[in-house]
């Protein structure tokens, strides 16, 4: 199948909903339309791949450990709070 001619309006529409495409939150018909455009438009491919990588980098960003000091303070707080039994009634 010959590539679809470059359509700036579709580029703009895709640009506005690229995150939804990445998150699979579009309808099947919307996804098919944008996927078809993506196969034909190099500019939108770059846009999609760089945004996809941005999301991956966020998802894979490491976590910092809780310091020993904070863990001890939390433990002491929990002990203090629960010394009288269950939590107080929330009014």
């Amino acid at each position: 199948m010959p590539p679809e001619p470059h359509d700036h309006e579709v580029c703009r529409a895709l640009f506005a909903r690229l995150s939804e495409l990445i998150d699979r939150e579009l309808t099947p018909a919307q996804s098919r339309r944008f996927e078809r455009h993506l196969r034909a438009c190099r500019h939108c491919q770059v846009c999609a791949e760089t945004l996809r990588r941005t999301v991956e980098l966020c998802r894979r960003a490491g976590e910092s450990p809780v310091s020993g000091g904070l863990a001890r303070r939390l433990q002491a707080m929990a002990r203090r709070l629960t010394a009288a039994g269950g939590p107080p009634t929330a009014d």
Binding site: H8, C11, R12, F15, A16, R42, H43, Q45, V46, C47, E49, T50, R52, R53, E56, L57, R60, A61
Partner: peptide
Amino acid sequence: LEDFFPEDPAAMPEDVPSWARLPLERVL
């Protein structure tokens, strides 16, 4: 959204940059 839409899409690169193309472990 307009702040991020390229003013001239034709001037955008046509190749996916290495940071988005290489395996994630090599980039992160």
